[in-house]
Design a protein around this nucleic acid. Sequence first.
DNA 1: CCTATGATGATCT
DNA 2: GATCATCATAGGT
Length: 217
Amino acid sequence: MTTSPDRAPLTRDFFDRCVLEVAPDLLGRTLVRHSAGGTIELRLTEVEAYAGEVDPGSHAYRGRTPRNSVMFGPPGHTYVYFTYGMWHCLNLVCGPEGRASGVLLRAGEIDVGVGLARERRISARSDKELAKGPARLATALDVDRELNGSDLFDGPAPALSVLHGTPPPRDLVRSGPRTGVGGDGAHQPWRFWIDGDPTVSPYRAHAPRHRASRRTT
DNA sequence: CCTATGATGATCT
DNA sequence: GATCATCATAGGT
């Protein structure tokens, strides 16, 4: 039985590097999700780096809390959080240990399991939209907080893993400010994407909510 | 294509 | 109580 090099899993050492190296290096890689519904494979086209306690845009900026604790653990694990009352976002924890950094997986192209992804993403108007955005990606892959902290290298068929895939030519890798990040971290060019790829999500600048108080009924 | 806005609840201060 | 690493929808261009 032969396995082509692009189907080989990445090693844990791949993730045990500075997040600013790992993030662009993840573009073009293949994310594999095994769940009860079936298998999804996705080619990553857009990611963002969050550099831990030194990064004002990072959940880890103000230190360890119950939510962000897996960011402080070893690399090669998932960090899944719930946001805006409705959505989940999926990150991969990077090294070195103690840095509390992670890569937000923002978008990709579904290569395997398009039918299953469409069942989970009824509102998608085309296949290009199935994982165009971090919460859409998490929805298409059936990722929620149950997956938080899971090890990408947990046994022969982990719930989530990353294969080598085919990285794009370096001159197609672009970088710019992170979507929806404000404050002192707003201008770091730590969003990375494949230029011209139709599955990359639109950039949105940080939009502060202004006096948006809700009635308490 | 674009912009504006409501939905919804965990988290942290 | 404010914020939030977002999305779907409605309506204008």
